[in-house]
């Protein structure tokens, strides 16, 4: 009995140490990626190619999701506000929640699921098929050539995708509020303009999604590069990207919101 408890404690301790070791490895990896960004910029073609697969190919989901989130936000806030005779504030609700929360967060979650997992799978597959080792032996640094462009593309694409998400969401909200529920179009825009701050709301939302971009891309490329080079290890790494990525987004969202809006 005592022995089992000792064993359990030992296992717990080892798991904790492993976790910290992983975090350390991931941090060193991030430093290495960052230090290789400069060398990568000499080849903009690599970045453009990655922007395509990370950004353009995620666009459809973002647009569809943004449209429907905006529409449902308008509907819900209409039902809540009409009781107080404040239905003209629907646009304020829609725009504020999109800019501050839903835009950055949902975009990042979708990004982790679509682009993040694809990044992990791609890099992991290159590791499994010894392509990364092969590059090293050809005196080509795979971090500079493979990892850095993918990381940077993720960081650039995220705020752009979030902006598109929010803009489409506002249009979706407009469709429901003005075309469907018959609110006044002028009131819709003027209420939003009166109550939404450029720096505090739009600016902070963009900073949020930039942070999410860094973190999700970091997790995705690290999990791929660090995966166990078997088909099973690859599957686990892809799952970890989505799980850790999503959790990191939600936790960071709270922290950033508290820092930015909680005065």
């Amino acid at each position: 009995m005592v022995e089992t408890i000792l064993n359990r404690t030992q296992m717990l301790g080892r798991a904790t140490l492993d976790g910290f070791a992983r975090l350390g490895r991931a941090s060193l990896f991030l430093l290495e990626v960052l230090s290789n960004l400069g060398g990568m910029l000499k080849r903009p073609g690599l970045l453009i190619k990655q922007l395509f697969s990370v950004g353009v190919q995620t666009l459809i989901i973002i647009v569809v999701a943004g449209l429907f989130v905006g529409m449902v936000m308008a509907l819900q806030s209409y039902y809540a506000l009409v009781d107080f005779g404040a239905e003209n504030s629907v646009s304020v609700m829609v725009v504020l929640s999109l800019l501050r929360e839903l835009g950055p967060v949902i975009t990042a979650l979708l990004f982790a699921g679509r682009a993040g997992s694809a990044l992990t799978a791609e890099i992991g597959l290159m590791k499994t098929t010894e392509q990364l080792s092969g590059m090293e032996m050809m005196a080509v640094n795979p971090i500079e050539r493979i990892v850095a462009p993918r990381f940077l593309a993720g960081v650039i694409a995220m705020p752009l995708l979030a902006a598109i998400f929010s803009a489409v969401g506002v249009m979706g909200g407009y469709l429901v509020a003005v075309e469907l529920l018959g609110l006044d179009a002028g009131a819709f825009w003027s209420q939003a303009q009166e109550n939404v701050e450029l720096i505090d709301d739009l600016g902070n939302g963009m900073i949020k999604s930039l942070v999410f971009g860094v973190v999700v891309s970091w997790i995705a490329v690290f999990e791929g590069y660090d995966c166990i080079p078997t088909s099973e290890g690859l599957g686990q790494a892809t799952t970890r990207t989505v799980v850790y990525g999503s959790l990191a987004i939600l936790v960071l969202d709270f922290v950033l919101t508290a820092l930015m809006f909680g005065k």
Binding site: I48, K49, L51, F52, G55, V56, L59, S91, V95, L99, A157, P159, L160, L161, A163, I164, S166, A167, V168, V170, W189, A192, Q193, E194, N195, V196, E197, L198, D201, L202, M206
Partner: peptide, 27 residues
């Protein structure tokens, strides 16, 4: 490829612009 990426980046910037102009108090 370049064209698609260019359009994507332009769409992102246009979205930011639209949000700034019509949905916030930039004016």
């Amino acid at each position: 490829l370049e064209l698609m990426v260019g359009l994507f980046v332009a769409a992102g910037i246009a979205a930011l612009f639209m949000l700034a102009m019509s949905a916030s108090n930039l004016s």
